[in-house]
């Protein structure tokens, strides 16, 4: 930790970055915090938060207003993947963000990460809905006819909070299809089943970096990560493309049928 803080101070002091997004504890709650050269002494309070916030999404929202800034990020593996995608979609310019790696993924479990604590899944949900811990392979072992019923069970719980989109580091369209009346009928709850979820799933193909933040933010525990993993698996199988691991254009945009057109100015999903 001391090493990490030294690096952050160095980056800020040397002007390598103008802001560094990490975490600071307030009354026992780790909150995202912007360290700057004006408050170097506060870097001492930098903590590694077990609660994950999408620091890259915050960085993109700052850069939209202040494109001249350079921002450093305390980066988990998922942050790195998300920044790759944001760069592909021109939401951040190469060089606007610098990552300080935390190395947190399961293969290196020394750093705490909320994604590593498996969700608690109740027996009724396992019986009628979908166990959030299933891998796409395990889920596909369930007979196809039954699978759809299970998705229906999950989708009908949706309270249309748009949290899955709002928290997602790679959802940034100014005009979001989920709010287009012709695609998803804007009525009461639940939102049009399964259209709402299909639209988003299609958009996440070749884009989702499997950070799991959407599922963490879903008030009704819909296994969104599984849904998008399944879509991404199809992309990987068809095109041999691993989202977030390369700077190559995703196959969908190569084919010209991209789910959402990349834009020059970042909009933030909302």
């Amino acid at each position: 930790m001391a090493e990490l803080k030294d690096l952050v101070r160095q980056w800020l002091d040397s002007g390598r970055v103008d802001l560094f997004l990490g975490y600071k504890e307030v009354a026992g709650h780790p909150l995202p915090y912007a360290f700057s050269p004006d408050n170097l002494e506060e870097v001492e309070e930098l903590v590694v938060s077990p609660a994950r916030y999408s620091l890259e999404k915050l960085a993109a929202s700052i850069l939209k207003e202040r494109p001249q800034l350079k921002i450093g990020l305390l980066a988990r593996d998922c942050t790195r993947r998300a920044v790759q995608v944001l760069t592909i979609y021109n939401q951040v310019e190469p060089g606007q963000v610098e990552l300080l790696d935390l190395s947190c993924c399961p293969s290196r479990p020394q750093v705490s990460c909320s994604a590593l604590s498996p969700p608690q899944v109740g027996e009724v949900k396992r019986a009628l809905g979908i166990d959030n811990r299933l891998t796409p392979e395990q889920f596909e072992a369930i007979p196809a006819a039954e699978r759809f019923g299970r998705w229906l069970y999950e989708f009908q719980k949706c309270i249309k909070c748009y949290g899955c989109r709002d928290i997602c580091p790679v959802c940034f369209c100014r005009e979001c299809s989920l709010e287009h009346g012709e695609l998803v009928e804007p009525r009461d709850l639940p939102p049009e089943v399964p259209m709402f979820h299909w639209v988003r799933a299609v958009h996440m193909a070749g884009r989702c970096i499997d950070c799991g933040l959407c599922e963490e933010a879903c008030p009704v525990d819909i296994p969104l990560r599984l849904l998008y993993r399944q879509t991404n698996r199809i992309v990987r199988e068809l095109f041999g493309y691993d989202t977030g691991l390369t700077l190559a254009q995703p196959p969908f945009s190569v084919l010209g049928v991209g789910p959402a057109e990349p834009r020059e100015a970042a909009g933030g999903g909302k």
């Binding site: 899944v121 109740g122 027996e123 009724v124 949900k125 809905g129 719980k157 309270i159 909070c161 009461d188 709850l189 008030p219 009704v220 525990d221």
Partner: peptide
């Protein structure tokens, strides 16, 4: 609709 984050707990209870 009116208290969605309370509904979350109700649904979780049901699923448990």
């Amino acid at each position: 609709a009116a208290h969605p984050l309370v509904a979350r707990r109700i649904l979780r209870a049901k699923e448990k």
